[in-house]
């Protein structure tokens, strides 16, 4: 119905104009429907494809891409290094999303890729001949260049469907500051997950969010709200463990979008040192046990320091 009405009002309208119209009307509908709460918005957003199909039929024009009920602006940041052959397929999925811009950060030796990116109207390419210490540092640098209300951090080496990436953006638009993909499930049994994953999970546990398991900022794809980026700071964003600790300590709203799998990007060897920095940050800000008290030990019996409410004088069991 909306599609036919638009067609009769704009007989010479382009597909681009139709898309922006459909995106706008879909967001309005979703907002009206979700006045009761963000949960409704998430449920309603599932019918975007059906609405797009209606627009397509009514207007008689081909309508590509995902319709997302986003009230605020969104952009994407990705890092492409060494595997530029995958970049076109990654970008074709991102092009299907209603993004303000797509910041592509290129590593050392990617001069030729720069030219191919010129054909993408929404792409902003950043190139550093010196390269970056890690994909996280590269994406952090890219995040500085965008002022959108939500930033999707994507893997530049492995395409992820626009539908899944769109789900992350919808969650962020509904009020979540940090929307993570689920990589813990993919990592398999605990004993095979490895040190980096254990450290990520323990950081979450020690900061009171065991439900996040080993999912954390840095595991692409993920979305940060403007509030989250400002609170964490782009410098800390380059060290994911520090960013995660900052987000948890500052009480940002963090959730895992269980339907979106992690891309499986390999962590750089320096990941463990990031955790050292993260614990240094939060142990210097809070007490030595981060609110996990030792109220039962009689430490004075061995000449230790007093701990607990009673100063360790009395053991209570």
């Amino acid at each position: 119905m909306d599609g036919a009405a638009w067609r009769s009002a704009h007989p010479a309208g382009t597909v681009e104009a139709l898309r922006s119209y459909a995106q706008r009307t879909w967001t309005e509908k979703a907002c009206r429907h979700s006045a009761a709460g963000p949960g409704n918005l998430l449920r309603f957003s599932r019918y975007g494809a059906a609405y797009a199909e209606g627009i397509r039929r009514g207007s008689g024009l081909e309508l590509h891409g995902e319709l997302l009920p986003l009230r605020r602006s969104a952009s994407a940041v990705l890092y492409a290094e060494g595997n530029e052959s995958r970049l076109p397929s990654v970008l074709s999925e991102l092009e299907r999303l209603p993004l303000q811009e797509i910041v592509v950060v290129l590593g050392a030796g990617a001069e030729r890729t720069l030219e191919t990116l010129l054909s993408y109207p929404r792409v902003v390419a950043v190139h550093s001949p010196a390269g970056y210490v890690s994909p996280h540092a590269a994406r952090a640098a890219g995040a500085r260049l965008t002022g959108a209300d939500a930033v999707l951090f994507a893997d530049g080496a492995k395409p992820c469907s626009a539908k899944l990436l769109g789900a992350l953006l919808v969650h962020a638009d509904a009020g979540t500051d940090v929307v993570l993909s689920d990589r813990t499930t993919q990592e398999g049994a605990f004993n095979r997950r490895g040190a980096e994953s254990w450290l990520r999970e323990f950081l979450n546990v020690s900061l009171g969010r065991p439900d996040l398991r080993a999912d954390a900022i840095g595991g692409v794809p993920f979305v940060l709200s403007r509030r989250a980026i400002d609170a964490i700071g782009t410098e800390a964003l380059g060290i994911p463990a520090r960013a995660q600790a900052a987000a948890l300590v500052q009480g940002l709203r963090i959730s895992v979008c269980g339907t979106v799998p992690g891309s499986g990007e390999r962590e750089p060897a320096s990941a463990g040192s990031g955790h050292i920095e993260a614990w240094r940050d939060c142990l210097s800000m809070r007490d030595a046990r981060l609110g996990f008290p030792d109220s039962k030990r009689n430490r004075q019996a061995i000449g230790g320091e007093a701990h607990g409410e009673d100063g360790g004088r009395l053991a209570r069991l």
């Binding site: 390269g131 890690s134 996280h136 540092a137 060290i239 040192s273 050292i276 240094r280 142990l283």
Partner: peptide
Amino acid sequence: IGDHLEAIGWWLKSDGAAGQSPPGNVAGRG
């Protein structure tokens, strides 16, 4: 869990992490 955090805190204070940490501008380069 608190015991483990206390241990990590002691280790950080006693510079146990000095050899392993490349702190500073990891994000700053490039």
